[in-house]
Design a protein around this nucleic acid. Structure first.
Lengths: 201, 201
DNA sequence: GTCTATATCCCGATAGAC
DNA sequence: GTCTATCGGGATATAGAC
């Protein structure tokens, strides 16, 4: 990452990490520089030395969170198993459901949506995820695991939406159960027919 | 509503409506009393005369928004058509997609989630919606329109989650398309088999 | 009921010492 | 690089005149 063998300053690093946590917990509008500085154990000057201001720091934090989410998803989606099994693994992977999605939640932040720069990493990440899932669905169709009438991109959007909406249901009810139930419903709709021809893995 | 023939004061009414708009646009954390007062054309005194403070006014606004959403959904779900057709009508009903769901978006607001009182109308509304949809799915199973292996409550959670997550995808990309695509994917998974026995409507 | 004035604290940012 | 001091304005609420 740091081609000259340098490392980012510890303070800069702590500022980004604190911002990531607070953006996840309270969103952009609900996160103040003061709260970030307190959590990072830094003073005002440090933040304005390393970053141009709150939007600039938030951008660094959002980019890192988005990257991390892509890496996590890729870890599951590139794993072993049939297309259905990989989708199931993605849907059932361990999540801190009640905390919500650190990327998706930003779409409800007016200031993030108002800024093309802040919105871009969010958009790119969810878009990447949909394309990745669409490819897996198409692969499943080729293998005969999914009905040939299904459209990869549509199903991919449904999968990502179910996850994002699952967070909403869980947070509304104060329990992760609703998330799991929604996922179960989707999997029951996606489940390969027992009596269908399928390639062996 | 007003048993004695009285009407709520116009000012109180305007305060609630302005709060509803701002909660939808900016969420609870992003909405200040000052902004509400400006939009309502009222002074500080009016607000603190009619309401105990920001949380109290927000509660009145959220309750009304929740009630309105239930009424809108009921209008479609109680409409004519087979179970599948009513679910399709719900999923395809006209929406201001890029504005997001005025109820669901509140689940991303830390202060709403931290307050049982503010969260309650949100929870009750999404819960009501899930139960209502679950009943329709069960009805569809009885009629043979849906596979008997499907679980009403799970499918209902998937439907509501797809809608809520559809808003997320749309707002991330800045276009309503992703919402529609996700809905299309879900409908393709729910679509009654052509060759299946079905009651006539 | 509604207004203005005031209070106290926080917001996001800048200045300049060290 | 990091600190503290300071700024102008906004957030939320109260006081008290009308």
């Amino acid at each position: 990452m740091y081609s000259e063998g340098m490392s980012a300053s510890d303070t800069s690093e702590r500022l980004i990490e604190s911002t990531r946590e607070l953006l996840w917990e309270r969103g952009y509008v609900g996160t103040s520089p003061k709260a970030i500085l307190e959590r990072a154990g830094a003073g005002q000057g440090s933040m304005y030395h390393h970053f141009k201001g709150k939007p600039d720091l938030a951008l660094a934090a959002i980019r890192r969170t988005a990257e991390e989410m892509r890496a996590t998803a890729a870890g599951v989606l590139d794993g072993p198993g049939t297309p259905y099994e990989r989708i199931e693994a993605y849907l059932r992977r361990e999540r801190d459901v009640l905390r919500g999605c650190p990327v998706g939640r930003l779409t409800m932040d007016p200031d993030v949506i108002a800024s093309d720069e802040l919105r871009a990493p969010v958009d790119e990440t969810l878009d990447w995820l949909r394309e990745r899932l669409a490819g897996i669905v198409e692969e499943g169709k080729e293998r005969g695991q999914f009905a040939s009438g299904l459209d990869g991109e549509s199903i991919a959007a449904t999968i990502v939406a179910t996850v994002q909406g699952g967070y909403v249901l869980a947070r509304a009810s104060g329990s992760p159960t609703a998330f799991d139930v929604g996922v179960r419903g989707l999997l029951s709709l996606l489940a390969p027919r027992q009596d269908q021809d399928q390639d062996q893995d």
